[in-house]
Amino acid sequence: MTASDGVVSDGVVSARLGPVEQIPVGEGRAFLVGDEPVAVFRPRSGGLYALRAICPHRGGPLADGLVDAEVVMCPLHNHQFRLASGECVSGGGVADVDAYTATEEDGELVVSLRSPSG
């Protein structure tokens, strides 16, 4: 886990978290952005995605989940969440998880606690 104090701009916390290669292709890793635990994923199909690291179901570690181009599957009870939006797609009344914005800037991973809608 890598922690970063984060920088606040426009009321949004964001942080530079070091080289993107910390995350093996196809997997996820957890980081602290300010006080927020964030899981960042690097699916084989490309792109970077960030979700709150804690599964809304029973607190499972999402960064340890299996991922494909669309979803991450929590390792504890297999609920699935969309990488792009955090939407829970496996039913069972489980809440969505917060989604954040992850980008690569000069080979470095940048996460801001802003929803990735835009």
Partner: peptide, 17 residues
């Protein structure tokens, strides 16, 4: 075997729970 293979995936939560 991979970077961060044994890194904690649930930061800040005191363990064990």
């Amino acid at each position: 075997r991979t970077p961060g293979q044994f890194h904690d995936a649930l930061p800040i939560i005191p363990l064990p729970q």
